[in-house]
């Protein structure tokens, strides 16, 4: 396992993502920030906390999406880890929805997330913000806001570690088992 980003570099990437989103985000509409479990949820949570501080007048809802039921590789998996619930307990219709994930690679998770999201309502638009875009897309999906662009060979996995989930901060790369 090799370190790709230090805690400081990760912080910078988070800032870059935040700045890109806030520069583009409509300030008069209802905003919905939706994190994809597990790291996307954490990033989205931090994001919402910061928005509340810097834009106190903005209407922001926070949701968590578990995309397990929408994945296209269920039949190929050998064991089934615990699925957790999706938590979107607000009206998604006509919101400006921001989907947040940690690493964007094949685009398959995002495909699943879009399907899941549309079972909950019809946002006015959906934007995608990712902390790291590492290339390697298998579907025609691209992020609207990116914290940091990296390139890593297909056989390697990039893992983001966050304080809330892993007691440390940084991004690491390792060979897929």
């Amino acid at each position: 396992m090799k370190r790709l980003l230090t805690a400081q570099q990760l912080d910078k990437a988070l800032d870059a993502l935040y700045d890109a989103v806030t520069a583009d985000m409509p300030k008069k509409e209802r905003i919905a920030v939706i994190g994809i479990r597990t790291r996307g949820e954490t990033i989205a949570r931090r994001f919402v906390a910061r928005l509340a501080e810097e834009y106190p007048k903005l209407s922001v809802d926070f949701g968590i999406l578990d995309i397990t039921f929408y994945r296209d590789d269920l039949a190929q998996r050998r064991g089934i880890p615990l699925v957790r619930a999706t938590e979107i307990d607000f009206d998604l219709d006509d919101t400006w929805a921001l989907l947040v994930d940690d690493v964007l690679q094949t685009g398959r998770s995002i495909r699943a997330a879009l399907d899941a999201l549309h079972d909950f309502g019809r946002p006015q638009c959906v934007r995608l913000g990712v902390l790291i875009d590492r290339g390697g897309r298998e579907l025609p999906i691209c992020a609207d806001y990116v914290g940091k662009k990296l390139s890593a060979p297909a056989g390697q996995r990039i893992q983001v570690k966050l304080r809330e989930n892993d007691d440390q901060e940084g991004a690491y790369v390792f060979k897929k088992a």
Partner: peptide
């Protein structure tokens, strides 16, 4: 039981 907890939401 925990998986069912997640399915309740559906």
């Amino acid at each position: 039981l925990d998986t069912a907890e997640s399915f309740k939401e559906v």
